[in-house]
Design a protein around this nucleic acid. Sequence first.
DNA 1: GTTTGTTGTGAATTAAACTTCACAGGTTGA
DNA 2: TCAACCTGTGAAGTTTAATTCACAACAAAC
Lengths: 215, 215
Amino acid sequence: MKILIVDDDAELRSHLVDILNEEGYETDFASSGKEALEKCQAQTFDIVLMDFMMPKMSGNEALKELRKHHPRTKVIMITAFASVENAVDAIKNGASDYISKPFKIDDFLTTIRRVIEETKFENRVKKLDQDKAFNAIASPIRRNILTMLSDSGPMRLMEITRELGIEDHTKVVFHLKILKEATIIEQDNERVYGLSEAGYKTIECLKKMEQILLD
Amino acid sequence: MKILIVDDDAELRSHLVDILNEEGYETDFASSGKEALEKCQAQTFDIVLMDFMMPKMSGNEALKELRKHHPRTKVIMITAFASVENAVDAIKNGASDYISKPFKIDDFLTTIRRVIEETKFENRVKKLDQDKAFNAIASPIRRNILTMLSDSGPMRLMEITRELGIEDHTKVVFHLKILKEATIIEQDNERVYGLSEAGYKTIECLKKMEQILLD
DNA sequence: GTTTGTTGTGAATTAAACTTCACAGGTTGA
DNA sequence: TCAACCTGTGAAGTTTAATTCACAACAAAC
């Protein structure tokens, strides 16, 4: 777990770094929003801990930029105790949580841990989705279905079945179900099968792989 | 099967087009090497039939260009009867076969059919290779092995086994064998496993897919 | 209103992928 | 030389994926 601490107050910054190091986290720090963005460009952090109030680029601006370019790193904002609206603002802009100054070390660590758990959980879910997608495109039949849907647009069950030259339609139903569970294809209310948003991305990948593998 | 006939002699050209159409092939024609390249750019041909001797861009030049930009379309050259060295030249430059002028229609068709059979065979083999590759990357374990080899360079069996946290090394052997059969990884004479040329391409694909699927 | 075609479900079977186990040759180091 | 480790094979067992079959709801066509 790599954590970046961003604060213009050198004393607080190094204090937080010490605490987190003691807990076994890998840390780095930045004294401004600009420096933080540069460090995030160079390496990948799991969590960024950022002060809301900073000179020049405000924490909120840096937050927006971060979420735009590194959607997978979580941001925790440090706000002044009084300003609830700042905290709400931060959440709206994509912060995972906020900590009000002054805070107890225990509360601080609890927040960090919770966000880490959330991150881990999200990653597990994404891994599962990925596994499904890779499995879905592992079968030649399913790849055929996908390229068909890509070339000819949405199709009905029996159209697909006949185009594939398969006699038993339940076999096709089986494969369509797998593609649907992987959210690669979807069915409209008239039961027509078509590529989903993720499906178009998958097709893109497929095309690239075929091209690369065929030469 | 789409065939492109390239010849500056309009009479011979339309004669060949007629013969091939009668045989049920889809045809198109061009009167110069330049025109042929343009047509190949716009659409994909399975076979290009090209006269060796043409004004301006020679058949040989056009052949080279074609092979460079469209390695999957086969080229059959038409040469003058006397010039054996031209035929040899054509083969060296990547032509699949050649036909000496004048020729009998039967011989001509036999050559066309042979090249078509070759193409079909090659495509079947490539399809099989592709299936293997997609299967190989369908397993999370094997994807882990690939990313490990990509990140850390070549590794020995037990290094891989321990890094994966697997107790039974024969399990890893099983997966390595599949990756080896898909020619994604290879073993040097000291039994160290490393990515093959196709392996690097596969990793590239994997990275792209992961990135696309994760967002 | 009966037939024909479409779109499914759920259980049973078959096939393929994966794992585990027993064993064995080869190398290294004490 | 003997013990410890690495690398692997082949068979048996387990699990998962894929196919086939029997059946059914629903719609359209005759």
